[in-house]
Simulated scan of single mutants.
Amino acid sequence: MISKVSRRGFILTATAAFTVLSSPAFALTDAQAKTLVDKAVNDINKVIASGKPLSSMIRDFEKIFSKYADVNVIARSALGPDARSLSSSQSRAYTTAFQGYIARKYGKRFNEFVGGKIEVKGVRKVKSFHEVQAVARLRGQSPFAVNFLVSDKSGSSKFFDLIIEGISLRLSEKAEIGAMLDRRKGDINGLIADLKKAG
């Protein structure tokens, strides 16, 4: 992957993660991207309608996130250039901590979705990935857009970003993780410890 980026002449570390995400998808079709999101949304809707306590819903959401999202790409993108300096053990620990953090942070929003659901509406090819468009319908609120950006660049179809009301999960978390790392003065192990409790 590094040599591929190098061949294309992208030398700015700030754009490296975006370059990886934006390189051409292999043979992913609109139908395959939509099928992935249909399954993810179906699983999410089941959790919303389950009546489980929030702690159980968060655990279920983490499983869904792990299954359908490209967690490694999202996690490394959120960390930015510092991801390149991680040891293999740090990388595993950071990715696991990031996954749990995302599950807690976004899983807590399930309370807002109880009695509502997410509906997949369509899909379109955007440059090198596919955008699957969905709508969240919550009780007492106006519907809002939830779009999944899907690629098979990592070897299997996964969503690498979630756009909620126009806000990118990946980019907003990059700002959050960057701020957390700054508070730790660049200490990756300190960041990992914080992520295990955050969300």
Results as ranks from 00 to 15, higher is better:
Lys34Asp: 09
Ala14Gly: 11
Asp43His: 05
Ile192Phe: 12
Arg84Cys: 13
Lys127Cys: 14
Val126Asn: 13
Ile64Gln: 02
Ala16Tyr: 05
Glu62Tyr: 05
Ala134Pro: 06
Phe26Leu: 12
Ala145Ile: 04
Leu36Ile: 03
Val146Thr: 10
Asn111Ala: 07
Gly9Asp: 00
Ile102Asn: 06
Arg92Phe: 13
Ala40Cys: 15
Lys125Glu: 00
Glu176His: 07
Glu165Thr: 15
Arg7His: 09
Ser87Cys: 10
Ala78Val: 00
Asn147Trp: 04
Asp182Pro: 15
Gly122Glu: 07
Val120Ser: 07
Glu119His: 02
Phe110Ser: 11
Lys67Met: 01
Asn45His: 05
Thr19Ala: 00
Ser128His: 07
Pro24Thr: 08
Phe144Met: 11
Lys117Val: 01
Asn189Ser: 12
Ala193Asn: 10
Val132Trp: 01
Ile164Leu: 04
Ser22Trp: 02
Ser168Tyr: 03
Arg76Thr: 02
Gln141Phe: 03
Lys121Glu: 09
Ala40Ser: 13
Val37Trp: 04
Ile164Lys: 05
Ala31Lys: 09
Ile2His: 09
Ala93Gln: 15
Arg84Ala: 08
His130Pro: 12
Leu181Met: 07
Ser128Cys: 12
Ala134Val: 03
Val123Asp: 08
Leu162His: 00
Arg139Phe: 04
Phe18Asp: 13
Val120Asp: 11
Ala40Glu: 15
Thr29Ile: 06
Asn189His: 09
Ala33Glu: 04
Asn72Ala: 11
Ala136Thr: 03
Lys108Asp: 14
Leu36Phe: 06
